[in-house]
Nucleic acid binder design. Structure first.
Length: 322
DNA sequence: AGTAGCACCTGATTGC
DNA sequence: TGCAATCAGGTGCTAC
């Protein structure tokens, strides 16, 4: 499930049942679900089999399980990382050995785990196959803070090193994010979606945060004031915290937690998916338009499109309406 | 350096 | 009814 609140819901579900368990068997049903490893599925199987899951960690939408050779102790230096990204449609499902169904048609991999509470299977499902698994090395974070949510250690997988800390990370450098949101020629929504500035924001919560902050999604970043950019960051943090409380947003069975259950935030969305419905703040009709390939929603009354100030000497092209 | 565009996939839904 | 076009919540590579 794509954005931060959904991935965090999955992380919590995994953490409760997987931490401390030992990976005993790996079945790969579709080789291409293992990426970023020269040896592919076979190498993945070799590197994770018989390793212990020390914890389940997350930064933005990236998940990883620090692996060790002995009993689970999150304080120790992990030997390796079992890393995962859910892409657009990835899911993890956990079943106890007694109640294990046949693998779902979209099941790409199944891990069999031995835990203190009994044997489990961990299925990785992914309809659109943009998600993936891999095993890799970890490295220390530069700031020495914990690498993300769900780990106390500063050890971060190599593949996550280029991703900024996420919106709900206490170690996030908010001032740097605010500065970045006010820089460049891209629209502010594009900057919000840039995972190297601040991670975890996807298409739904970008639209929601900008609606809350009353900022138009295509407004060029360099025209956004310090004050407005600050409000945008705070709105991102608030909307994600609200969504997390509701167990994330889901529209259908593609987006569920590790037990296959849906979250409830969809009914609390104010902009995303509400084209032609009245703005819950002012009543104007919510608009939708494709902006660089992504469906973008906003209130044309609360979120004014940027219109450069008229210049008496220059003749300007007519700016399109809202 | 910063940014836009496209490629990577499957499946459900919409429109002719 | 059947088939094609369109849409879906992400990331990363390439080329300008």
């Amino acid at each position: 499930m794509p954005e931060l609140p959904e991935v965090e819901t999955v992380r919590r579900g995994l953490d409760r049942r997987v931490t401390g368990a030992v990976i005993r068997r790996v079945e790969i049903f579709r080789d291409s679900c293992v990426r970023l490893m020269p040896g592919g599925a076979a190498q993945f199987r070799d590197e994770v089999t018989d390793m212990t899951c020390l914890s389940v960690a997350r930064r933005g939408k990236f998940l990883w399980i620090p692996l060790g050779n002995g009993p689970a102790e999150d304080a120790e230096v992990p030997e390796a990382s079992l890393s995962a990204h859910l892409g657009m449609s990835g899911q993890f499902r956990i079943h106890s050995a007694e109640a294990m169904p046949e693998p779902h048609p979209h099941c790409r991999a199944r891990l069999s785990l031995q835990s203190g509470a009994g044997d489990l299977t961990l299925d990785f499902l992914d309809q659109r196959t943009f998600g993936y698994l891999h095993a890799e090395e970890l490295r220390q974070t530069e700031d020495g803070h914990p690498a993300g949510t769900g780990t106390l250690t500063p050890y971060l997988p190599q593949s996550v090193a280029h991703i900024a800390r996420d919106a709900l990370d206490p170690a996030l450098n908010v001032a740097a994010v605010v500065a970045a949101l006010g820089r460049g020629t891209r629209g502010i929504k594009q900057v919000l979606l840039d995972q190297t500035v601040m991670s975890g924001v996807g298409n739904i919560y970008a639209d929601e945060a900008l609606w809350r902050a009353r900022v138009h999604p295509t407004r060029p970043a360099h025209t956004v004031s310090f004050r407005a950019a600050t409000t945008v960051v705070e709105s991102v943090q608030q909307v994600m915290a609200d969504a997390l409380k509701a167990g994330g947003t889901s529209f259908d069975s593609l987006y569920v937690n590790v037990n296959g259950e849906s979250g409830y935030f969809a009914r609390d969305l104010d902009a995303y998916g509400r084209e032609h419905e009245p703005c819950s703040r002012c009543g104007a009709s919510i608009r939708r338009e494709r902006v660089s390939g992504r469906s973008t929603h906003w209130c044309p009354s609360c979120q004014r499109r940027y219109a450069p100030r008229r210049n008496s000497t220059a003749v300007r092209a007519k700016t399109p309406g809202m």
